[in-house]
Write a protein that binds this DNA or RNA. Structure first.
Lengths: 213, 213
DNA sequence: GTCTATAAACAGATAGAC
DNA sequence: GTCTATCTGTTTATAGAC
């Protein structure tokens, strides 16, 4: 029996260290020595378990996808809600996603890792797309369709949903810029509520405008 | 007389190479050898002109700020337009910013460099804030105030403007995800027009909702 | 100012003992 | 599976000729 925090042993420790360090400093700025040190493992363990640094990155992306699925799959889809119910569910998703993106601690370092892969166009972007971006987008499109009566897979709806997602993502990616201009020290619960309220108001404005067309 | 593309000589060639390569591959993934090669300069020139790689990054950020100012300062501010005029100017800015962010070639590699500094929380983020983010945000706030009658510096207006900016930024940052889901090969003039139309529609929806409150 | 040559530190990967 | 020790290549930085 070892002192490793994971029963599965060193392998998972290394993956966890990878998600954390790759997310914090980026892939090329992270050395295998740092990874091994943080994981409490030997330098040679990376080559032994994965083959090399690049393959560790892939393993991190896969683990990211697994955890992402677990964190997302607990939301059942209502079959055919009314427009009003669909609007409420959209608002609830906005709140949940913002809590996940902006909250003090999303599970592990998943969000930074995801954003790094996006910024670096890394191999994990494929996983990000499959496990997070695409399912969420489709789910929102379905709800948007119920809320407006439009075809959920029409170009207009898909674009509208992206413009909604963009608002949420930017408040995370542009956090240093937003905080500075707003005079905030960072994102606390109060600030997240304010952002959530703003985006929900935008949602209602967009839905209302759609109905009046 | 040398064959350098810049009359000011090697120094500017290195900065240009830095903006390009740092933007494309990131700071730590770019070696001084690549930089020197692209600039047509010697490896030792970086240490001679700047002191080191890190200082070259700072020089790139400053040059970025200079070019950004030049590219932005050509828009005169109307003194006190009507609500309708303010709305039209907001729409015009949206179109211009999207053309800059999403267009085939913004001037030099300025946009990728900016996004990298944002993603890496690099020292250039300060310059990005001063020369791009803050002036644009304040200008939009002023127009938003004219369009709605609200206090341009109120928290509500500042947040609303960020939610508008976020939509534009995300269509750039999330380009691989958006393109894939939309079934686009990339962003051409037609796609940019579509995005511009969507965000302009959102602008009108938000302004309308504000008026009816 | 620009070059060659090289120093000194660091990277990722591996061989082989245990 | 994990370790130490080391190999090989690359990194940034620098010394000194021109």
């Amino acid at each position: 029996m070892t002192t490793s925090p994971h029963p599965e042993g060193t392998r998972l420790d290394l993956i966890e260290a990878g998600i954390l360090l790759f997310g914090q400093k980026g892939f090329s700025a992270t050395s295998v020595r740092e990874l091994a040190a943080l994981a409490g493992a030997n330098i040679a363990a990376i080559a032994y378990h994965f083959g090399g640094k690049e393959e560790l990155r892939l393993a991190c992306a896969e683990e990211f996808g697994r955890q992402m699925r677990d964190a997302t799959d607990k939301a059942p889809v209502s079959p055919a809600p009314t427009a009003s119910k669909a609007r409420d569910e959209l608002a609830a998703i906005i709140q949940a996603v913002l809590a996940f993106l902006l909250g003090a601690r999303g599970p592990g370092g998943l969000v930074p890792f995801m954003l790094r892969e996006l910024a670096e166009n890394g191999p994990g972007i494929e996983v990000v797309y499959r496990t997070f971006a695409d399912p969420m987008h489709r789910r929102l499109c379905t709800l948007w369709g119920h809320a407006t009566g439009l075809d959920p897979e029409s170009e207009a709806v898909r674009l509208a949903v992206f413009s909604l997602i963009g608002q949420m993502m930017y408040f995370r990616i542009g956090q240093p810029i937003v905080s500075r201009r707003m005079g905030w020290a960072g994102y606390g619960p109060a600030e997240i509520d304010q952002i959530s309220g703003q985006i929900t108001a935008n949602l209602d404005a967009m839905l209302t405008a759609e109905k009046e067309t």
